[in-house]
Write a protein that binds this DNA or RNA. Structure first.
Length: 442
DNA sequence: TCTGGGGTCCTAGGACCC
DNA sequence: TCTGGGGTCCTAGGACCC
């Protein structure tokens, strides 16, 4: 049995933990660059505000209804997410962290009957609310896909926030009451295709023959979906692990690491683009080291206006292959800048840029390349990275950095925003992760 | 002036190997 | 009359997820 724990309106809920006066009021959180709505409180949903809606289009409506607006604050959300997972790890034999705001629990070992599973789900919900302040819903079923369905049907208000679907007699009526597009694994395209054929509900989908899903819904992906809907687990269990009492998220097997950003305004100058690309390479390299990985392929990406009516591709990429895999910031910046020089066309205004690392392997496992320097060089690089990461962790992310990222001016002890930097007009303080921004009680 | 970012998996086809 | 079988690796594209 799996329990899916999903945080309600997660980013909004994080903001409300530190601004409880916003309880009951409409609140939204914007994407990077204050671009779109990516989290909405129930009151904001009730106003008809949609997920992903461009901020500049709904701004008048937001002002009219006095909606509280936040820029995204990933330092805060990431830390709150970590706390949620920590609490969950004390409540189940295993935790599979699926995203920043949801996790599956292994509850098969509980060997409890349905009423007890319901009580268990309630205990999870109540413990999380008490220890982190985040409201959640819990769905329990024999497969991940059915647990998702159960979670979706769990009430978001009132005392009971758990739904269990233990047997076919439970999940068949549940499938009958949801549109096919709300089933996990059925996206917009498949939903359209299915409804055009007269398949409207989850149950109608489940009643199609297994081979039909294999043929028409992405091959083995569709076949797995069919089995999951019939109570046969087909999706992998990917547990988070504990290492020196520290939670290691289940990301060791990831295949890529990226950092991309839209600019506050379009940029065409080589020097500005280079500073941005160096910054993204630095961030991505930090992620690589955090998870003990190294990369041997560096992709640089430059994007023009995605919404321009002109034909042709809006994103251009260049791939640089390294002789050996590395997670050394200096080497990765060098490769990224080489890619940038190949890509950039003079006079073209770029709206976004990014760096993508692939060809990942565990660090230290890399073969010594013929032209990649000696083992002593590699050891020096490792020591340097460790020293940099240590200093930056202790004194702030930007304390020691490559000159390629640019030399920002210091204004009142704060680093000035780079020229390519995006908008974030409504960001809340980093209450739990920044010494200068701690929550103050008087 | 104005529309996010970070991932996963699968399939098909081509190049190349023995 | 008419060109095997089995395999790997890579890329591009398409679908999906939050």
């Amino acid at each position: 049995m799996y329990a899916l724990v999903d945080c309600n309106n997660f980013y909004v809920s994080c903001e409300r933990v530190f601004a409880p006066q916003l309880e009951g009021r409409p609140v939204v959180v914007l994407s990077n660059n204050d671009g779109c709505l990516i989290s909405r409180s129930q009151e904001a949903k009730d106003l008809g505000l949609k997920m992903g809606e461009p901020y500049h289009l709904v701004r008048p409506l937001l002002e009219q209804h006095r909606v509280q607006v936040f820029s995204s604050n990933y330092a805060l959300y990431g830390d709150m997410s970590r706390r949620v997972v920590q609490v969950l790890s004390g409540l189940a034999a295993g935790v599979d962290v699926y995203s920043i705001d949801e996790a599956f629990l292994d509850v098969s070992g509980m060997k409890l009957l349905e009423p007890d599973l319901l009580a268990y789900g309630q205990r999870v919900h109540e413990t999380l609310k008490k220890h982190t302040g985040i409201p959640t819903c819990v769905g329990i079923a024999p497969t991940k896909t059915l647990a998702k369905l159960a979670n979706r049907l769990a009430p978001k208000t009132g005392p009971v926030r758990t739904v269990t679907l233990a047997t076919a007699a439970d999940w068949e009526p549940a499938l009958a009451q949801v549109p096919v597009g709300s089933i996990w694994g059925v996206g917009r395209r498949y939903a359209r295709k299915l409804t055009d054929m007269g398949i409207g509900t989850g149950l109608e989908l489940a009643r199609l023959p297994e081979h039909w899903l294999r043929r028409h819904l992405g091959g083995v992906v569709g076949q797995r979906l069919w089995r999951e809907l019939h109570g046969q687990p087909c999706l992998e269990w990917n547990p988070a692990e504990w290492d020196d009492d520290q939670l290691q998220p289940n990301t060791a097997s990831r295949h890529s690491v990226t950092c991309t950003r839209s600019f506050g305004r379009p940029q065409h100058q080589e020097a500005v683009l280079a500073e941005a690309v160096a910054t993204f390479a630095t961030r991505a390299a930090e992620k690589l080291r955090r998870y003990g990985q190294a990369a041997h392929l560096v992709t640089v990406l430059l994007g023009t206006d995605r919404f321009a009516p002109t034909a042709g591709p809006k994103t251009h990429t260049a791939v640089i292959s390294l002789p050996t895999s590395t997670n050394d910031t200096g080497m990765l910046i060098k490769a990224a800048l080489q890619g940038l020089r190949q890509l950039r066309r003079p006079g073209v205004a770029y709206h976004r840029a990014g760096v993508l690392f692939t060809g990942l392997e565990p660090e230290g496992q890399a073969q010594l390349g013929l032209f990649s320097g000696s083992a002593a060089d590699q050891q020096r690089s490792q020591q340097l990275m460790q020293a940099m990461d240590g200093l930056n962790a202790r004194f702030g992310r930007q304390l020691v950095r490559s000159a390629a990222m640019g030399v920002a001016k210091n204004v009142d002890g704060l680093l000035q925003k780079p020229v390519w930097g995006g908008r974030a007009a409504h960001r809340s303080p980093r209450y739990t992760t920044g010494w200068d921004e701690l929550w103050q009680l008087r």
